[in-house]
Design a binder for these strands. Structure first.
Lengths: 331, 331
DNA sequence: AAAGCTTCTGTGAACGTGCACAGTAATGCG
DNA sequence: CGCATTACTGTGCACGTTCACAGAAGCTTT
């Protein structure tokens, strides 16, 4: 049996298509009598609007595409995505928008995304963890509004975003170490082509000034293994370290393993601070002192920015949200 | 400037709409000359097919909806989702299908999903971690094909699925313990209304037979906190435990904390085995011996089943994939 | 040479909706 | 009472595509 159309509803309610359409789209000019008749007809027939037909005439698709730019293997190692996805679905659903997921790991993926978006299949684009200078950014300059969750540092292309105040978070942790009386404070950073990599180091340097020498800084790539490697490197280079700020919890878990292997006690010999407050921070031994990002708010604000742009706001300001120090046992 | 339509392409190539449409849809009756002309016209104009218009006439939407049934808070605590999402996007993209995400946490969500699916907005449904007796299952009996990643135990409603052989995995771990010479082997299960909760306990009981007494079994809810609680409970009840099989890595991390608090050494005093081989298994101390599920294959097979049904296969058999014991330091 | 294939092409109709417009009835106002 | 205004309703058209059909051209068979 065929699905009911707006004609069927109109016929059942004894009105015309136009009136049903008006009710559906919130037009004020619908008489109370027509209103109840139509509502009854809708529930009786089980009518659901045909999005394709609507799209065809409104030139809107009713969907937002979330583009995940992480290289495939790493995707979602970071559980932050879960919050972002959940919050996005929820907020978009309220506006009757659906969330379509796309990958942008390699060149083929990226081309697909561009085709999709420029083909008019989405009303908005929600970028996630897009790297600096990603060609996608330029390709997306025309087309529907795009925003990013997390800062995105492009050359010319500026894209609105909501993000945590990464630099503040790094300062909070570093200041906490200083307050504890630690003197030789090292840092393991993330990749230096990501905002998290750059800004967390900046915050560290803000507090330590000239004391933040390159001997005290090692670089990782967000993975646990890289954290372990970087920690080993630091210990070899500067054995008298008494604190280390690691730019992610996952890397901090690796650092803990390296410290344990080197016979250092945490936090007695070396204080360890992470970043993210991800679930892993609770399963390490000892549980990690870390910096919590307001993930839900970040997601919320990102979507809010996108919706504002879709609603016609010509320009929106980036949103930067404060982080919070979470003290556990590692420092 | 307006987006080019199939008319524009046809005009530019000097043919008619029909011919362009045939080329686009892989009809064999297109002359070589027309073919090259159209292909040139497409790339010159930057034409992308309008899905809405196509949907309208084909009655297909070109999208698959993934329904996430976890209660919101827990969603994605399990990083398995990431693989599933990634693989699904990738496989669907090959068929030019896009993946739409929906939540089904509460009643309102579920109604939304049903409206969406029965409204004909999706060509297929991909269920994730749907609980036994979920009302969604009945509601989805009519409509487009639906499959599940992970077994779903309904009353009457049977739904095709691909899953790991959970029972086998539990047997593997339990047999490993037995082989190590452990005598008092306990288990912490998941919630008993989930396949993972039920089947992992079954496998445990398969091996231990009458030795699997209720004194040696405690229940958790997949969270780390519940694992810690259950472990404490077990130690109180049966202090001479020398091994414990925990039905998830996250709960196992909790169990490790409880064992440490009780002064038990792992694996010397108590061997600990997890399940999932999730990232957390590497960040615990000691790293967890666990059971690896073939996540990528599970996802792949799930999508394959769905595509088969969409292509008209009347009936498909569930796919059950073997698990693998991963030995680390905790046992 | 006629008939029948095969290969290829163009055309009209239909899919279900929103929107602009025209039109009608009821109400308010001078 | 006449006229403007408000509240509401119905209709035709357009959106961009696929599909069924009809038809043209070239080739093979009778």
């Amino acid at each position: 049996m065929k699905r009911p159309t707006i004609h069927d509803v109109a016929a059942a309610a004894g009105v015309s298509r136009g009136t049903v359409s008006r009710l559906l789209n919130g037009d004020k000019y619908v008489s109370p009598a027509a209103r109840v008749a139509i509502e009854r007809a809708i529930s009786e027939t089980g009518y659901v609007v045909n999005r394709a037909a609507r799209s065809l005439v409104t030139q809107r698709t009713g969907s937002i595409v979330m583009v995940l730019s992480e290289p495939h293997e790493k995707l979602f190692e970071d559980p932050n995505y879960s919050t972002l996805i959940r919050v996005s679905i929820r907020m978009l659903a309220e506006r009757d928008l659906s969330l379509v997921m796309m990958l942008a790991g390699d060149e083929g993926d990226r081309e697909r995304v561009v085709r999709y978006v420029r083909g008019g299949h989405a009303d908005g684009v929600l970028l996630v963890s897009t790297h600096a200078g990603d060609p996608l950014l330029d390709a997306l300059r025309t087309g529907p509004p795009a925003v990013s969750c997390g800062a995105v540092i492009g050359r010319e292309t500026v894209i609105p975003y909501a993000a945590a105040d990464e630099r503040l978070g790094a300062r909070q942790m570093t200041e906490y170490f200083v307050g504890l009386g630690r003197r030789r404070i090292a840092m393991i950073t993330g990749p230096m082509d990501t905002p998290g990599g750059i800004q967390r180091l900046e915050g560290f340097a803000d507090v330590l000034g000239r004391k933040a020498t390159s001997k005290l800084i090692a670089h990782g790539d967000w993975t646990q293994a890289s954290g372990e490697r970087a920690m080993t490197e630091l210990l070899g280079r500067t054995p008298d370290i008494d604190a280390v700020f690691v730019a992610s919890d996952l890397m901090a878990a690796g650092a803990l393993a390296a410290l344990r292997a080197a016979g250092r006690r945490v936090p007695d010999d070396v204080a360890v601070g992470g970043f993210d407050d991800s679930p892993v921070a609770l399963s390490t031994h000892p549980p990690l002192t870390t910096i919590r990002q307001p993930l839900a708010e970040m997601a919320q604000e990102t979507v809010r920015l996108l919706l504002a742009l879709i609603d016609g706001a010509g320009h929106v300001e980036p949103v930067i949200l404060p982080t919070e120090l979470v003290i556990r046992d590692s420092a």
